[in-house]
């Protein structure tokens, strides 16, 4: 059932900054099957959102794809024409943004914002598009959809606005849905509802999803496979089960253990949390021929500073791959 819909090969995205040209995505490769859900994890500034924007052809003006391929259904879209990208965006690949408060247009009704997509990509006339909009709002479980299409964004709660964003993203039944931190601004109970909704839709329509998050719990709930990004590079990739059970990259390990997870019924708790020292390096050091995590790493050796580790498969079942000189600790 390996039915690949997206295949990213050695993607390098460069930013032209005052300090020179730096790679914000450095040799990134991954693939996505139809109906598969993959999680992108990492701190801010590690290239998660930049990956999404590169896929959508929405890189900021200082950025460009320097090399590599983005094969969507076998066709490279890196150099696709503006018109071709406009046909893809919101239609075959669509995206849900982080802030439901700011990504809807405040001066249009939500009905017309959903209808806009249908009009553009499906050539529907106004009444037909609005009728479909009602169905979509029903599908994302907004009560009283028939009347709500006349509402403006400010009349809805944060959770409802995010549902509207999902409805817009799903309007044209995309083959890939990118969700960039879709629940960060929302309460946990609302987050749980949004996750349920996304997962149900994914299963029903066989939509492939890319979920960008920093929450390991969210990845566990939502994705089958995950990819950990650090400073523009992929540092670990594999099935969610395998990585959470035995993370091989010290960064992945740190990300999992530095969050206080709820322990039900625990009487004794550790007094301190394991820390990852320091912060993500400045963008100017991206692309150096060394392990960029080295300054924060407990496994640091001279080798880590001398050369960038290759991304290699580890274990037998090919469920996990990692970019680290010492995936089993410093001894090996």
């Amino acid at each position: 059932m390996s039915d690949t819909i997206l295949d990213v090969k050695n993607l390098r995205v460069e930013f032209n900054t005052r300090g020179g040209i730096v790679p914000v995505l450095d040799n990134l490769s991954f693939s996505l099957d139809r109906g598969e859900r993959i999680g992108f994890v990492g701190e801010s500034g590690c290239g998660k959102s930049m990956t999404a924007l590169a896929l959508m052809g929405l890189l900021p003006s200082i950025g460009r794809v320097a090399s590599g391929q983005i094969l969507f259904k076998g066709q490279d879209i890196v150099n696709a024409s503006t018109k071709r990208m406009q046909d893809i965006r919101g239609n075959e690949i669509s995206m849900i943004f982080q802030e439901p408060m700011t990504s809807l247009n405040p001066v249009f009704t939500i009905g017309s914002q959903i209808a806009e997509v249908l009009h553009r990509h499906r050539n529907m006339d106004k009444s037909e598009a609005l009728k479909t909009a009602v169905d979509l709002l029903d599908a994302v479980k907004i009560p009283d959809a028939r009347n709500r299409i006349a509402s403006y964004p400010h009349q809805m709660s944060g959770g409802q606005r995010q549902r509207v964003m999902i409805a817009i993203a799903l309007a044209c039944e995309p083959e890939i849905l990118i969700a960039d931190e879709p629940t960060t601004a929302l309460d946990v109970t609302v987050q749980a509802e949004i996750f349920d909704l996304l997962r149900d839709i994914g299963v029903q329509t066989n939509t492939a999803m890319i979920l960008i998050t920093h929450d390991m719990g969210a990845v566990r709930q939502m994705a089958q496979r995950m990819l950990v990004m650090y400073a523009g590079r992929k540092v670990e990739e594999g099935t969610v089960d395998q990585i959470i059970k035995s993370p091989r990259h010290p960064y992945t390990k740190g990300l999992i253990s530095c969050v206080p997870h709820i322990r039900k019924g625990a009487d004794r708790l550790p007094n301190t949390l394991p820390e990852i020292d320091g912060i993500v390096p400045d963008i100017t050091s991206f692309g150096k021929d060394q392990c960029l995590f080295a300054p924060r790493c407990e496994r640091l050796t001279q080798q880590c500073l001398d050369r960038k580790p290759d991304h290699q498969m580890i274990g037998k079942a090919e469920q996990q791959s990692v970019s680290c000189w010492h995936p089993y600790g410093r001894q090996t």
Binding site: V188, T189, Q191, A192, F195, D196, R199, D215, M216, G217, A218, R220, Q221, M222, I244, I256, H261, I262
Partner: peptide, 14 residues
Amino acid sequence: NALLSAVPSIELHA
């Protein structure tokens, strides 16, 4: 109860 059960856990599948 509802609040606690809504927190995504890394230990359990959805």
